[in-house]
Design a protein around this nucleic acid. Structure first.
Lengths: 200, 200
DNA sequence: TAGATTAGAGCACGATCGTGCTATTTTCGT
DNA sequence: ACGAAAATAGCACGATCGTGCTCTAATCTA
């Protein structure tokens, strides 16, 4: 029964469904970057997207699935905005610099409405009881730290890349929370300076 | 009409009220360190303290007041646990070391159930719309960063203490979120190492 | 000890939460 | 063009939210 048209489907849905689903998740990631994934409510999300609560809900079987889907969707945006562009460079200092610069720009320009989506959900789910959403957050965080370490590994000289990745992540994340809280973009200069010093 | 007995009151309440209020706020800070101050609900707090919702609510005029009171209460604990003990030393390196060590220990031993209360509420209220609670969080954060900078100012040599305070705060805060999320206490060694390197 | 004040419980309210079930509309394959 | 299937809306549910009002129990003052 696997006709050719069925293969073009994704998630049992076709074009229209996929598009609205994507636009829902766009909005969801924005809202969650402000209020967190737990603070995200289906009612408010429905109002924000101009849909009915039930019509929106039908795209996801439960709030939990919505949260997971939102996380993955946010990661796609992060990939396109921060991770992929530096790949035009060979591994090495130039690429690391591009990655760091893109990361800080992503925070400063508020690609997500409330700043870094991942910084928000990491602290949100840090101490929450375990579950599918928390596990996705943990996995995603490990992936990011690992990617960072691998990029640093291409740098000349032998450094402790785990340690270095820890420090760089710390400095960027702190810049994000301070920018959100205090509105002063100067923190990005502080972060950039500290990271550069660490890389030299 | 100001009799002597009236002067001994605080907030219009006497001993019994003060004690239960304090125990409520103890629990509230614990819960908020996990779910945030917005995630804190009066119903769950009542269950956790064994009180009725209305009996508990009577101690605070509104949820907002409860949130503010919880923040101040948490700060008292932080003061006693982290800020005050190092004051037995004169300003200088020894005192800074004691402060940093105490700070990291406060995170590792989970003085609050969900790790650092302040790290949680700072990211929680970073991008939220303004209001009394957010303002308290902002003020408190500035106070902490300022205290850190002043302690660093007593160190020999002329360093950029603002920059240094930014970096130390970043490293400690990152250790907290990673410990909560990944459970690995080794992050505190990473943080301690990075901070020491920064101070030398 | 009597009277006043404070602490707390009981209960109810409207709003919002996540989540079902049942139309109805829109799209697509034939 | 028609029938199937997918997308969305309408509506209702039980639970929980913050917050009032009223009544009892505990404590303190005189």
């Amino acid at each position: 029964m696997a006709t050719e048209t069925e293969e073009t489907r994704e998630d049992g849905r076709r074009t229209r469904g996929r598009k609205t689903r994507a636009s829902i998740l766009d909005m969801a990631a924005d809202l969650a970057s402000v209020d967190g994934l737990e603070g995200l409510s289906i009612g408010r999300l429905a109002v924000a997207t101009g849909m009915s609560k039930s019509g929106l809900f039908a795209h996801f079987g439960s709030k939990e699935e919505l949260q997971v889907a939102t996380y993955f969707h946010a990661r796609e945006r992060f990939l396109a905005e921060v991770i992929l562009p530096p790949r035009e460079f060979e591994p090495g200092r130039e690429r690391v610099d591009a990655l760091v610069a893109g990361w800080l720009r992503y925070m400063r320009t508020e690609v997500f409405r409330g700043g870094c989506f991942f910084s928000e959900v990491r602290t949100e789910f840090g101490s929450r009881e375990d579950g599918p959403v928390r596990q996705v957050v943990v996995k995603g965080t490990l992936r990011w730290l690992d990617l960072l370490a691998r990029e640093l590994d291409a740098l000349p000289g032998d450094r402790d890349v785990e340690q270095l990745a820890f420090e760089i992540d710390a400095l960027g994340t702190a810049a994000n929370y301070r920018f959100q809280l205090l509105q002063d973009p100067a923190v990005f200069d502080q972060a950039a300076a500290a990271i550069s010093a660490r890389l030299d």
